[in-house]
Design a protein around this nucleic acid. Sequence first.
DNA 1: TAGGCCATCTGGTCCT
DNA 2: AGGACCAGATGGCCTA
Length: 195
Amino acid sequence: MITYQRDRDISSSSNSSSSILSIRPSFSDYTFCGVNEANYYPSFYPFVGQTWTPTNFNLTSTIAQPCEYDNMLSAGKQTKAKRRRVASVAQRRAANVRERKRMYNLNEAFDQLREIVPIFAYEKKLSRIETLRLAIMYIAFMTQIINGKTVDTASLSAKKALEEWLNDPQNSLAVDQRLFMETSYSLDTDSSCSL
DNA sequence: TAGGCCATCTGGTCCT
DNA sequence: AGGACCAGATGGCCTA
């Protein structure tokens, strides 16, 4: 009997002699069940903390079948005939690496955006959603300037938008209201401002 | 301790 | 067929 848990749990666990193994069994575990690498089917999450057996993973042949959990997930959904892509261990790992790289690039773009939007007295690092919302308002503010509105008028609209935003019950963000006031103040007083 | 934010894994879908 | 993109799930970390 083998019990699985996530890789992350393993790395944070100090007890290396534990009988708890990785949720991703070694290749030998698959071959033990008669599954070859080409038919690797990586759906083990439902069995975290549970005793793993070929029965509850529905491994009754040499080919891994979708487990009950996947059937539960797809139940109730209007599904057309789906293409089941069978990924090898190497393909799945490569996809994970690509996904990490994709998210890294996304975060790099967020960092660049954080450097552009004016935050002034805001000492805390903006979250991604804060960055996006601030950028939206900043663009709206600058658009008004470009369209000939005075800084005062544009700043008034920006302040109004900011107040609406802050008063939005859905918005739990506690942003200092000085953000946009200081933006307009900076435009007013700093001629070298490159905003 | 609850909630927010984030990283990561994963499978489905779209596109080349 | 395979990569990119996306959303759901999950767990860790931090803060109020």
